[in-house]
């Protein structure tokens, strides 16, 4: 397991996955406050010349909480898209490029390969989420006032990380089914966004992992029952997706007929 974890860590560093995640998350945490405090009031002021700047600021809700909410909205949509973009190739690329042949022949267990991918990706997302959330908190606090409690930031980052761990497991699972990077990316992102809309409409989201998307945006205090079902369902579904991904890869022919035909032609 240790060697698989090191390998995934090196992959993240050398193939710049961590760099892309880090820069994107940090950019979001800085750009949202800049947009809210500087660019947007300026645009509105130029568009609506009669309106004084104080009125515009009231309309925009430029309190720390208001800007932080905007950041979380952006983070949900753009952050998830970036996660899908960076991680969609994790499984399909290995299958396509046959890079699993030697590890499999060397006796490296499939469960170690899958779990290390999941653990390292989740850990990286968790680290960059915490950094992004704290940066946003500090930046918005400096530009206005610190009216949010710091524990809410950590709680939000924790909920998002838990949700991200489910998303990573989902990406890995869809990757084992489609074996195609683009299909994995589109299916995962569309499924997440659609299920968020549908289950929120029917008020079922608090019983599902998707409920964590609402929970990490909440700045109000929460009782355990408010997040219990979402956390439990996310944990159970993440485990199920990982177990099924391991099963799929274990029973997968690592060479397809298409490749056999291509080889025969050459």
């Amino acid at each position: 397991m240790k060697s698989s974890l090191i390998k995934e860590w090196l992959y993240g560093l050398r193939k710049h996955s961590f760099l892309i995640l880090g820069i994107s998350f940090v950019s979001l945490s800085i750009l949202t406050p800049i947009m809210m405090y500087i660019i947007l009031p300026e645009i509105l002021y130029q568009e609506m010349l009669n309106l004084p700047l104080e009125e515009i600021e009231k309309v925009l809700d430029l309190s720390q909480q208001g800007v932080y909410h905007n950041f979380l909205n952006d983070f949900t949509e753009i952050g998830l898209l970036i996660i899908c973009l960076v991680l969609a190739k994790l499984i399909p690329q290995e299958i396509k490029e046959h890079t699993w042949h030697f590890p499999k022949l060397s006796g490296i267990e499939v469960k170690h390969v899958i779990l290390s991918k999941w653990m390292i990706s989740t850990l990286a997302i968790m680290i960059f989420t915490v950094i992004a959330f704290i940066l946003c908190y500090l930046y918005t606090g400096l530009l206005s006032t610190f009216d949010l409690k710091i524990y809410i930031i950590f709680r939000g980052a924790l909920f998002f990380s838990l949700f991200a761990s489910f998303v990573v497991a989902l990406i890995l699972w869809i990757g084992t089914l489609t074996k195609n990077t683009m299909a994995t990316l589109i299916i995962t992102y569309v499924a997440l966004m659609l299920s968020n809309t549908i289950f929120s409409y029917f008020e079922m989201d608090s019983y599902l992992p998707i409920g964590l998307m609402r929970l990490f945006q909440t700045t109000a205090s929460l009782k355990p029952l408010d997040y219990l079902y979402a956390v439990l369902s996310a944990t159970v579904m993440t485990s199920l997706l990982l177990v099924h991904s391991i099963y799929r890869i274990k029973h997968l022919d690592l060479i397809t007929y298409k490749e056999v035909k291509k080889h025969a032609k050459t």
Binding site: K2, S3, S4, R14, K15, F102, P103
Partner: peptide
Amino acid sequence: YGWMTPREYMVYLSH
């Protein structure tokens, strides 16, 4: 893995 060195790769395979 093209981003690994032969030594790193073989250490990984030796697990």
